[in-house]
Structure formats: structure tokens, C-alpha cells
């Protein structure tokens, strides 16, 4: 079995097809940025993108991924290592406390901004409601999503202007 993850084709060997994507990423591929929190799609710590859609990888069997493209938090930065807009906003606003949920939060925000580049407050609240933060950093997460959205929009405008 193979898995397309972060732009690479990774060979999995004989993994049980029922294995949740989460444990394949963590145990088999060493991509530990994606976190285990509850195992029942309640906390969002395991959020990744499958073909650009946010998915709870703890409850998503590897067999369901098939040929789809998986993106994890490790796949967001540019090939030169430059943080993407969401990651950079998380650093600049010092969002994290313990930080355990933040990879999932970042992936949920990434999915939101890909679908809705200019989200309103309610859009943000709704999109992020699937992700728990035990430390209660929601206020900064909200802010960081807005900052990331603004960064992406200005980058998009700059690239439009350049064309």
C-alpha cells in the first residue's frame, strides 16, 4: 500500500487497511505533528487535509484514503522552509499554550482559508468549532485566523498585480 502525503509517495508495507490514518502517519511514517486526542472525532487534534478537505484522521481508515492527497502540518511550510501564512500568524501572535491541539487548529484554519479566503467571525467560529483547545487559546486562534487571511489576501493581490 502507498500513501500520497505532503507531495511524496510513501510506501506503507502491509498495514491493516482498517488502521486510522492518524496511526499510519504517526507510527509508520514518523509524521508526529498530527496528534492523538480522543480517537472518536471529538477534539480535532488529529485534523489533516485529504484532497484539501479537513478530516479527523483518528477515525479515517487508511483504506478510505486510496489515491487521495494527504496534507499534514509538516507539509505546510514552503520547500525553502518558509512558514505559510497560517503558521506564521500562529508564531507572531504567540497563540499556543501547551500547543498540543495547535497542529489540528492550524490544519482546520488552513482548510477554512482555502475554501473561504475572507471569512467572517461566524465563519471562523463555525469552522473552528470542531477543534478543542484545553488551554483555552480560542481568542488568539480567532485573531490568528484573521491575520493569516489578511496575509494570504495581500499575497494574492500582489501576485495578481505582478501578472
Amino acid at each position: 500500500m502507498d500513501l500520497k502525503v505532503n507531495g511524496e509517495l510513501r510506501s506503507l508495507g502491509d498495514v491493516d487497511p482498517q488502521t486510522p490514518l492518524l496511526w499510519v502517519l504517526r507510527d509508520e511514517l514518523g509524521l508526529v505533528g498530527t496528534k492523538f486526542g480522543c480517537g472518536i472525532s471529538q477534539c480535532g487534534a488529529c485534523t489533516v487535509l485529504v484532497d484539501g478537505q479537513s478530516v479527523k484522521s483518528c477515525s479515517y481508515p487508511i483504506s478510505s484514503v486510496a489515491t487521495a492527497e494527504v496534507t499534514t502540518v509538516e507539509g505546510l511550510a514552503g520547500s525553502d522552509g518558509e512558514l505559510n501564512a497560517v503558521q506564521q500568524a500562529w508564531v507572531d501572535l504567540d497563540v499556543a499554550q501547551c500547543g498540543y491541539c495547535q497542529a489540528g487548529q492550524i490544519m482546520a484554519a488552513e482548510a477554512l482559508l482555502r475554501a473561504k479566503p475572507n471569512p467572517g467571525d461566524d465563519d471562523i467560529d463555525q469552522a473552528m468549532a470542531a477543534n478543542l483547545c484545553r488551554c483555552g487559546t480560542y481568542i488568539r486562534i480567532r485573531e490568528a485566523v484573521k491575520v493569516a487571511a489578511a496575509t494570504r489576501r495581500s499575497a494574492a493581490e500582489a501576485s495578481d498585480a505582478a501578472e
Binding site: 508526529v32 505533528g33 509538516e74 505546510l76 503558521q87 500562529w90 508564531v91 504567540d94 500547543g99
Partner: peptide, 9 residues
């Protein structure tokens, strides 16, 4: 740790 955190290290 924020840089490492957002990279999923």
C-alpha cells in the same frame, strides 16, 4: 518552541 510547534516537529 513556537516555530517547531507550527511545523509539527
Amino acid at each position: 518552541d513556537n516555530d517547531a510547534l507550527v511545523r509539527g516537529e
